[in-house]
Design a protein around this nucleic acid. Sequence first.
RNA 1: AGCCUGGUGGUGUAAUGGUAGCACAGAGGUUUUUGGUACCUUUAGUUGGGGUUCGAGUCCCUGCCGGGCUGCCA
Length: 561
Amino acid sequence: MSDSEQTEKNLDFIRTRVQTDQRSGKNEGRVHTRFPPEPNGYLHLGHAKSICLNFGIAQEFGGLCNLRLDDTNPVAEKTEYAEAIQSDVRWLGFDWEERFFHASDYFDQLHAWAVQLIKNGKAFVCDLTFEEMRTYRGNLVEAGTNSPYRDRSIEENLELFEKMKLGEFPDGSKTLRARIDMSSPNLNMRDPVIYRIIHQQHPKTGDKWKIYPSYDFAHGQSDSLEGITHSICTLEFEHHRPLYDWLCENLGIYHPQQIEFARLNLNYTVMSKRKMLRLVEEGHVNGWDDPRMPTLQGMRRRGYTPQSIRDFCEKVGVAKRDNVIEVELLEHCLRHDLNLCAPRKLGVLEPLKVTISNYPDGQVEQVDAVNNPEDPDAGTRTVNFSKHIYVDRNDFMEDPPKKYFRMSPGREVRLKYAYYITCTEVIKDEGGKVIELICEYDPQSRGGDTPDGRKVKGTIQWVDASSAQSCEVRLYDRLFKTPDPDKVEGGGDFTDNLNPDSLQTIKTALVEKSVIEMQTGKPFQLERVGYFCIDPDEAGSAKLVLNRTVAMRDSWAKANK
RNA sequence: AGCCUGGUGGUGUAAUGGUAGCACAGAGGUUUUUGGUACCUUUAGUUGGGGUUCGAGUCCCUGCCGGGCUGCCA
């Protein structure tokens, strides 16, 4: 089977549809999508799924994808967010070229269309208050009743709408409503509000407008104006589709196809802007870019690569059923990418002093270390080795269980890239805590092999005492301690499920000197420990702060649970 | 309650009337100068009940369960 036949077989339902449309010649074979966030918050992993879907489909089908800011509500929207959105989409690896739009670009046209609807008797100005409108709307089981203002004359509607536009009425006093069907089982069709009065500066249009179109009156028409062929959105917009269709038809404009898919959920995570906002505002995390946040900015600071996120979005698939993805899949994608591209370094989180008794005093030599075993082109580097080194405290056990391959009295281990050593003496403080190991090394084992070919089971990492760089390391764990943070016993909320140990700070870690040359945010591997990157905190100062991106998989720890 | 929508291993996703597959997770193993990686093996699934059909995850009926909808948010 050829590749094209292979890929053809496993398309998700949206791509299947796009392919069918393209082959049937719909829209002259054009494929044009868009990513339409509202600039009222930061982008998160859920948005990444949508971005990858929309931009991905455009790429795969030889089409285009626009970036459009859905800025129809100046109350919530800020330019700060608009800028962050652009930078995040670019960082993820997508390019909208010159096709950067705003719903507000279309306010004049949208207004004209509203007037057209009024002239056709399909929209009216309504004086009902918010509460009254709710009463008139009816409910899930009962039909609504017509607004007493529903049958105003076209002239009166036109005049009133003009006055709304001129700012002659206070917020909330009047709305423009589509005249559809108050008895529709779909509440969105019960004469929905399409324009509301908001006396508020708009980031793009300033004080030009006192009235703003609702989402429903802006979105489909924006799609139409941009020639979008497939308007992909999440499931909660499903009941809006009849209204989307009604507007395109009654306005007599080009009619894109709205298609809905199920949003992404991740266990041990909250994925809504509202909840993330609370985490930030209540100080449970240190801002939107806290490395524990599922925001693109947080993940980026944590050390996630765009490639790993794109890979993840591809692997989770697209369908209509509700889903909760296991974080293990995300971590798998992360480690998979990092394994391939992250340079290796040596470092110890909990330094334990080691003195090599038979190594010459004052001697310093340089040993060769491989930069990336997955990439021969990455080459090698040298690291200092001397009589005094540090190893990780958890790589030594005075009384180890069988199957423990690391250091213990009398057992020989390999210091990665350096020598075999054997612990000959354990030094403790008054409290009985091990504070230093005295070892002997085999001068013949330089580089990690001996002429007699004897094997050692354990290989551990280390740093040279005099040249190592000290640093602070921030170890992150999942932000919530339960898979579904919203599930709370007896009436609390998701903040009750916060993991108190989601951040552990180690102030006295030691890493090889060359770590300071790493670029902020660019992950590297501390061998056997995990992937880390330099945090922007303290950048430029002598202090070094490392974020743990993700730990190594650890089958030893798992086996011992 | 009404309307809409969905239900395939633990999780996610394929199979569009013809061998239920893939990935992650789990278990076991091989390799290994990272207890990493890679590779191999393996456990585990069509929501219940009827029907149509030579043949049903797929079509029909019905039950059950999940999600969404009563903003002048998007």
